[in-house]
Amino acid sequence: MPQLISRRIITKADLAGVESYCVAVGASKLIAETMTKGDLPDLRLGGLQIRYMQTARQLAAEYGLTPTSRARIGSAAPEDDSDNPLAVK
């Protein structure tokens, strides 16, 4: 995130969409944890999880959060894994 912000790929106007991405990923993980606690998986929860995962994938692509979408945007800067992903300025 700090790199995408510094390169102005993500701006303050995009933060609501990025927040939606985070919510979708969190909901998907919560559903996965809930499904593993039961004896039999709830198929309705499975369908809901798939929809959250699809939403997260679409938002990630829209905001340059995937390698493919960053390449499409033209971001040729090398990845730096030393950034703290939560240190958004």
Score class of each variant (00 low, 15 high):
residue 74 G to H: 10
residue 71 A to T: 14
residue 50 I to C: 15
residue 3 Q to H: 09
residue 33 E to I: 01
residue 7 R to Q: 10
residue 35 M to H: 07
residue 10 I to V: 09
residue 34 T to V: 06
residue 31 I to R: 08
residue 58 Q to D: 05
residue 27 A to L: 11
residue 18 V to F: 14
residue 9 I to E: 02
residue 68 T to V: 14
residue 12 K to R: 13
residue 30 L to P: 00
residue 80 D to W: 08
residue 85 P to F: 03
residue 54 Q to H: 02
residue 41 P to H: 01
residue 68 T to H: 10
residue 86 L to F: 09
residue 5 I to V: 10
residue 27 A to D: 02
residue 7 R to W: 02
residue 67 P to Q: 14
residue 40 L to R: 11
residue 41 P to N: 01
residue 58 Q to P: 01
residue 68 T to F: 04
residue 44 R to N: 15
residue 46 G to Q: 03
residue 5 I to W: 00
residue 75 S to D: 13
residue 48 L to H: 05
residue 43 L to W: 13
residue 12 K to I: 11
residue 12 K to C: 15
residue 75 S to E: 15
residue 72 R to D: 07
residue 64 G to E: 11
residue 72 R to E: 14
residue 7 R to P: 05
residue 87 A to K: 07
residue 51 R to I: 01
residue 30 L to Y: 06
residue 4 L to I: 05
residue 77 A to C: 08
residue 79 E to P: 06
residue 19 E to N: 06
residue 62 E to W: 00
residue 29 K to N: 13
residue 77 A to W: 14
residue 29 K to R: 10
residue 71 A to I: 10
residue 32 A to Y: 07
residue 82 S to L: 06
residue 43 L to P: 06
residue 74 G to T: 08
residue 58 Q to T: 11
residue 65 L to Y: 06
residue 9 I to L: 03
residue 30 L to W: 04
residue 35 M to Q: 09
residue 19 E to A: 14
residue 43 L to C: 05
residue 15 L to I: 02
residue 52 Y to W: 11
residue 53 M to G: 14
residue 27 A to N: 09
residue 85 P to C: 04
residue 14 D to K: 05
residue 15 L to G: 08
residue 87 A to P: 10
residue 36 T to R: 10
residue 31 I to C: 01
residue 37 K to A: 01
residue 63 Y to D: 03
residue 72 R to Y: 15
residue 85 P to L: 05
residue 7 R to L: 05
residue 29 K to W: 07
residue 42 D to H: 03
residue 27 A to M: 13
residue 49 Q to H: 03
residue 88 V to I: 09
residue 44 R to I: 07
residue 4 L to D: 02
residue 66 T to R: 13
residue 6 S to R: 01
residue 48 L to A: 12
residue 41 P to R: 06
residue 2 P to A: 00
residue 4 L to K: 07
residue 67 P to E: 15
residue 39 D to P: 11
residue 8 R to H: 15
residue 16 A to D: 09
residue 46 G to P: 03
residue 87 A to R: 02
residue 29 K to Q: 15
residue 71 A to Q: 13
residue 84 N to H: 14
residue 11 T to D: 07
residue 42 D to W: 03
residue 84 N to S: 15
residue 53 M to L: 10
residue 20 S to W: 02
residue 66 T to Y: 08
residue 82 S to H: 10
residue 23 V to R: 00
residue 17 G to F: 09
residue 73 I to A: 05
residue 14 D to H: 08
residue 57 R to Q: 11
residue 64 G to L: 05
residue 3 Q to V: 05
residue 85 P to W: 07
residue 13 A to H: 08
residue 82 S to R: 08
residue 49 Q to V: 13
residue 20 S to E: 00
residue 44 R to W: 11
residue 30 L to G: 06
residue 61 A to M: 02
residue 69 S to A: 09
residue 51 R to H: 11
residue 80 D to N: 02
residue 56 A to D: 00
residue 37 K to D: 03
residue 12 K to A: 09
residue 29 K to T: 09
residue 9 I to Y: 05
residue 76 A to R: 08
residue 82 S to W: 04
residue 70 R to D: 12
residue 5 I to M: 04
residue 55 T to I: 03
residue 47 G to W: 11
residue 54 Q to E: 13
residue 85 P to M: 10
residue 73 I to V: 14
residue 1 M to D: 09
residue 64 G to M: 13
residue 61 A to N: 13
